[in-house]
Design a protein around this nucleic acid. Sequence first.
RNA 1: GGCGCCGUCGCCAAGUGGUAAGGCAACGGUCUGCAAAACCGUCAUUCCCCGGUUCGAAUCCGGGCGGCGCCUCCA
Length: 484
Amino acid sequence: MTIQIHDTLRGEKTELVPLVPGQLGIYVCGPTTYDFAHVGNARPYTAFDAVVRYLRFSGFTVKHARNFTDVDDKIIRRAHERNEDPFALSARYIDEFESDMASLGIQRPDVAPKVSEHLPEIIALITELVATDKAYARHGDVYFRVRAFNGYGKLSHRNVDDLKSGARVEVDDTKDDPLDFALWKAAKPGEPFWESPWGAGRPGWHIECSAMSAKYLGQPFDVHAGGKDLVFPHHENEIAQSEAAHGKEFARYWIHNGFVTLSSDGVGDDAKISKSKGTLLTIRAILERFDGEALRALLLSTHYRNPLAFSEQALLDADRRVESVYTTLEAAGRKFGARAESADEKVMAQFCEAMNDDFNTAEALGRLAAPLSRLGELAAKKSPKSPTSEEEREARSLLAAVRKATGVLGLWDRDPAARLLERRTTVAARLGLDPATVETAIAERTAARASRDFARADAVRAAWLAKGVELMDTPAGTTWRILL
RNA sequence: GGCGCCGUCGCCAAGUGGUAAGGCAACGGUCUGCAAAACCGUCAUUCCCCGGUUCGAAUCCGGGCGGCGCCUCCA
C-alpha cells in the first residue's frame, strides 16, 4: 500500500517514498504573526494536520516543523502604528494563533521555530552564499543572484526570461538584476536589528525557512507544504538559496493547498460574518458563533488542493453534519459500546484507499457515510438481540472503524454524549440562554402532557421553537437542542 | 502579456479512459398524542458549450463561454 502525493515540482501525483524508510520530515510554512489568523490561514494548517495525522497512522515516524515568522516588515509596521514593541506584538499573536489552532483540533508541530531565535543559522547561510558569489552585499543589504542558480523557476514552472519581461518590479539600481531578492535587509532607524557581517539589519522574507528547515529536518528533507500563493516567489526562492548553498536537493516533495474564497450566498446573514467584500474574516470571528469542529469539518470536506468557497451556509451545513454524526455515534455507543471489537477491516481499507490517493479527505469522508448510516440503522433497531449476535458484533466493529478513521481526521474524536452536551450549553451561553429555564419549561410541558393537555404542551414547544430551541420527546424523556 | 487552476443534481462535493460516491435540502414512509430526532425509500441516461480521438470520455485533444489565482514579501 503506497501513498500517492501530488507534487508541485513534478506537476503530478507520485509515490511518496521517504528518504529514510519509516520516517518523514515535513515542513509547513507557518504564519507571519502581526494579526489574528484568518480563514485562509486555517486551511493549510488543518489540511496538513490531517496529512500528518494520517502519515503517523500509516506507521511513519513524522517530524513536523512549522515556523513562526516573527521578524517581518508587516510586524514592524503594525507595531509602529500601535506604538508597541514588535516582538511583544508578535509574541501576542503567536499566542492567539496557538489558541485558534487548538480550537480547530490542530496538533502542535514537533518544532515551532521562530525567526528571532535563529539569526546565527540565517547569517551562516547567507555568509555561505556570499562566499560563493551566489549572493552579494549592497549598501548593507544582501541579494541572492537569481541568474546564478539555473534551476530557478522549476517549482512554479516559469522561466526566468518570462519573469523578467512581466516583472512588475520597479527598476532598482542597487540590484544587479531585477529578479534578485533580498536575503538580508539593512536596518532603518527605529527598526529592530541584529549585527551581521554586512552591518546591522534583519533577515529577508525567504531565508528563514531555508535555514530553519535545514536545521530541524536536514538536507534534503521529505515534504515541504504551504499555501498555493507561496509557490512563487517564496518557495521558489527557498529552493534557489538552499540548493545554491548546500549543493543538494532542498525538499523532495512539495504540496500546496488551494485558496479559501469568501462567497456571499445570499442567505441573509452572510454579510455579518464575511463583512464587506475583500475583508478578511478571522478564525476568531467564526469561533464566536460556530464550533471549531464545524469549521474543521468544512475545511476537510473538499480536497485540499481545490478552492473552497467559504460561506455562512456552508458552515451551517458542516455544523449540522458534525452534530448528526455525533448523534449517531452517541446512539451506537450507548447500545453497543460496552464491548470492544476490532475495527472493521473493509471500512478501514476503504478509508485508507481514499487517503492514500493524495490525502483525499473528501473522498474518505464520503466512504465513511455508508458504515455510519449502517451504524445508525443498527442502533435504531428496536428488538434487542443477544450481545453476541452477529449484528451486534458487526455494529461494534463498524463503530470501532468509524471512530478510528474519523479520529485520524481529527473529527468526531470526542466523547459523543459529552460533546453534544457541551455544544448545547456553549451555544446556549452564546445566545444568552439559561439551560435551567429550558428545563423548567420541559417540566411544565411534561406535566401538561401527562394530563393530556396537548394544546398546552404544544404551545410551550412552539414558544421555545420560536426562540430557536427545539424540544424533542424521547422514550427517556424530553431533550432539547438549539437550532443555529 | 506570461504561468496555472476551476466549471459534475436546488446547494456542497468525489470521481482524471470503462459506463455518475457521499452529504445537505426536498419528497414519500416508519415511529410519535402531534412534532422533532432517528431509521427506511425516492431523487443526475448525465457531468458549461461545440468539435475531435477512442470499441468506449465527466475524464484525453482542439476551440469557445464563464469564474478564479500567481507573476517580490499574501495560507
